[in-house]
Amino acid sequence: MQCRETNDLIMKYFDHDISELEIEMLLKHNEKCPGCALEFDAMKEALSALEELPLLEVPEGFEAKVLESIRMRDAAVNHAQSLVFWLIGILGLIIFACNMMSFVIIPYIRDSGILLIAQNVIIYAVTGVLELLREALVTLSLSVGKLLILRNVLLRDYMDAVMMVVFAFVGMNLLLISKLKLQEDWEGLRNEF
């Protein structure tokens, strides 16, 4: 058997896919061929070392950590989903409202003449308010004029009254003075007699 064939048998050996007969052939060849024997032994040593590497214990709490991460992700996804649903809902509502406005409410108002009535009502109300304002303005100016006239009248009457009092006072004084003078004259005459 050639070394090349042995090489195939070596690989079959480590594939765990080799017959008893083939193992025998391999070992027989190795007895005669130190190169192949060395190759086989070195490979066997290396792969046994690899196969014998211990299986490690998984760190404690591993499952809990994984489940926790999954739950957190699920929660985040649910949150995002509900947010998206809300946004879609609100958007739908806005679109519905716009459609209602442009295709139902506005045509209805236009066709029913409510708009015209509303326009008239507004014009009537505005005119009414303006009228009221004008009247208020006129009344105010008239009242002010009247008040001024009244003030003048009152002032004149007041002056007349004051003058009358002054005249009365002066008259009274003059009367008293003349009365005193008469008395003095009388007493002077009596003393002469």
Partner: peptide, 27 residues
């Protein structure tokens, strides 16, 4: 049922962890 996944983790964690450990060489 998220908790049911715990059973699967329990079953396969050893193989997965050890494969990852041997591939990365670092715990």
């Amino acid at each position: 049922e998220v908790d049911a996944f715990g059973t699967l983790i329990e079953r396969y964690k050893r193989a997965i962890f050890n494969t990852a450990f041997r591939m990365m060489g670092n715990r």
